[in-house]
Design a binder for these strands. Structure first.
Length: 508
RNA sequence: CGCGGGGUAGAGCAGCCCGGUAGCUUACCAGGCUCAUAACCUGGGGGUCGGAGGUUCAAAUCCUCCCCCCGCAACCA
């Protein structure tokens, strides 16, 4: 089956932070998970290169728009590559094909009479070059940033009518309980839909914003974020020009953080519905990463966790594992160098140490060859069967946030079980007694085979480590497939003792 | 009464829907083991489950009120 996974496209006015890294890692984990299940996955992530914020950043830089956008976009692309993210398409809204499809869609909606022009009156702060709502202002009615009173001005703009589709959307949510996951966010969306929906402003006059896609029916305007950024999800599939579009779109999954719930779960499905296109199949919504102690990250507090720094200290796979293992379903999740170090030690002690202790034993006592499995007893087989059964059941579940965190948990508990098995069977004692040779080999084989199963399950979350584990067991060109057959490790294969998977971290 | 989420051992979390001896990881302590990476195994100390009422034989779990934290409310994952 062909599946499609997307992340939001990220604004370029800043550097990528841990949240961007997380969403894109999550998509990559889901992609690899699905690939192991035999599904083809097309995965897109990328950058939003339009809008006033980006325009400001360009104007404040010494660079041309093109140079600035290229540089900033590359920051994201390079980070994602460094994080091992296997995206199939990197979105850039500056891409001409995207802009063309945006215009086609706008014209389509306009021709259906769903876009109206009217004047918008509001309080405009010249410092921010933005309209302000009363709730944005301080107690004196001034802009909190510029300490000046905003001007009441009126501006003509184009609007997309949402209200006619509100009831349709409510019904859709209620009749598709899995559409928005976790379910609590569906409730939140339903809450937003209790009141009539205002017309959605979809344009900006070029006099204010020049960085955007021109409206096909009025060259004095560019389109505002919604019909530009959201459309990336289908322009990437070459919507309107791709006979296979319906097929892949019907298995599409949007990953987003909770802050952009409203545009994605209200504006976007209504836009698609107006176009005669079905909504995305699933939304997966996650919370924020905040600092240890529940404090929001901020530069002034010095608790900002930078993904690039964390990769330098802990490595890609440990960061990926931490993020996947520690995002809670309920709310926001905490991250700090200390917490990451805890997560790192779990991997190092549990999986890394297990691999090293058994490999060294094979190297010293078995001439670096995987021993015979002929003498495996019931206990040995039971360990392997239990691990295989657990992994099999996880990989049978539908993709989702809960499935992914269960995967992480199942890996740690398999590592625990194998360490306990190893300690209980004292192979280092057996090794010294020639009469116990068969038993010794059985225990070592069992441990190696357990490690093989763990490495296979680890692939979506920690692909590089997974590869190292399999290779160290003498498996050439490991293939990662969602099959967990116990006792499949080839006897006689040459193991390779390499560097520790998770080496000791130097204290600064 | 704008909407929503959270408050459970020093730290990070699960349990709450479907009430019945308070659990996991980490940190700490002790013992074991010594194959291994700061290890691993076993055991232990530490919590009146934000507060107050109520329902019940029984409440972290259900109900009511209150306190605190965090998001969202036209553009930060």
């Amino acid at each position: 089956m062909e599946k499609y996974i997307t992340t939001p496209i990220y604004y370029l006015n800043g550097l990528p932070h841990i949240g961007h890294a997380y969403t894109s890692i999550l998509g990559d984990v889901m992609k690899k998970f699905e690939q192991m299940r035999g599904n083809n996955v097309y995965y897109s992530t990328g950058t939003d290169e339009h809008g006033q914020k980006n325009q400001h950043s360009i104007e404040n830089s010494e660079l041309s728009a093109e140079e600035f956008l290229q540089r900033q976009s590359d920051n994201f692309r390079n980070l994602f590559i460094n994080l091992g993210i296997d995206f199939d398409f990197f979105v850039r809204t500056s891409r001409p094909e995207h802009q063309k499809i945006v215009q086609e869609i706008l014209q389509n909606i306009y021709d259906r009479g769903l876009i109206v022009k009217k004047s918008y009156e509001g309080l405009y702060c010249e410092g921010c070059e933005q309209f302000k709502k009363k709730s944005d202002l301080d107690e004196n009615g001034h802009c909190p940033d510029h300490k000046t009173a905003p001007k009441a001005i009126s501006e003509e703009n184009y609007f997309f009518k949402l209200e006619p589709y509100r009831q349709w959307l409510i019904d859709y949510i209620k009749s598709h309980p899995d559409w928005i996951q976790p379910a609590k966010y569906a409730n939140e969306v339903l809450g937003m839909l209790k009141e009539p929906l205002e017309d959605l402003c979809i344009s900006r006059p070029k006099s204010r914003v020049w960085l955007g896609v021109e409206l096909p029916f009025d060259t004095n305007y560019v389109t505002y974020i919604w019909f530009d950024a959201l459309v990336n999800y289908i322009s990437t599939l070459n919507f309107g020009h791709n006979p296979d579009f319906e097929n892949i779109w019907s298995n599409s999954h949007h990953l987003i953080a909770k802050d952009i719930l409203k545009p994605h779960c209200i504006y976007w499905p209504i836009m698609l519905h107006a176009l005669g296109v079905a909504p995305v199949k699933h939304y997966f919504i996650h919370g924020y990463w905040i600092g240890e102690g529940g404090v929001k990250m901020s530069k002034s507090l010095g608790n900002v966790v930078d993904p690039v720094e964390m990769v330098d200290i802990f490595g890609v796979d440990a960061l990926r594992f931490y993020l996947i293992n520690n995002m809670t379903m309920a709310g926001d999740s905490q991250i700090s160098p200390d917490l990451l170090k805890q997560g790192y030690k779990i991997l190092a002690n549990n999986i890394g140490n297990l691999q090293m202790r058994v490999l060294k034993m094979v190297q010293k006592n078995l001439n670096s060859k995987v021993p015979s499995k002929a003498a495996l007893n019931d206990e040995d087989k039971q360990l392997l069967n239990n691990i295989a059964k657990r992994f099999t059941s996880v990989f049978r579940k539908d993709i989702g946030l809960e499935t992914i965190s269960e995967l992480a948990e199942s890996i740690i508990s398999a590592g625990d079980a194998t360490n306990a098995y190893f300690a209980a069977n004292t192979p280092w004692v057996l090794a010294k007694d020639p009469a116990q040779k068969d038993r010794f080999e059985a225990v070592v084989y069992t441990t190696l085979d357990a490690l093989r199963l763990i490495g296979n399950a680890l692939y979506p979350i920690a692909p590089t480590t997974a590869g190292k584990i399999e290779t160290s067991l003498g498996i050439e060109n490991p293939q990662f497939v969602a099959e967990f057959k116990p006792m499949s490790l080839a006897e006689g294969a040459a193991i390779k003792v390499g560097d520790p998977l998770f080496p000791m971290i130097e204290e600064k």
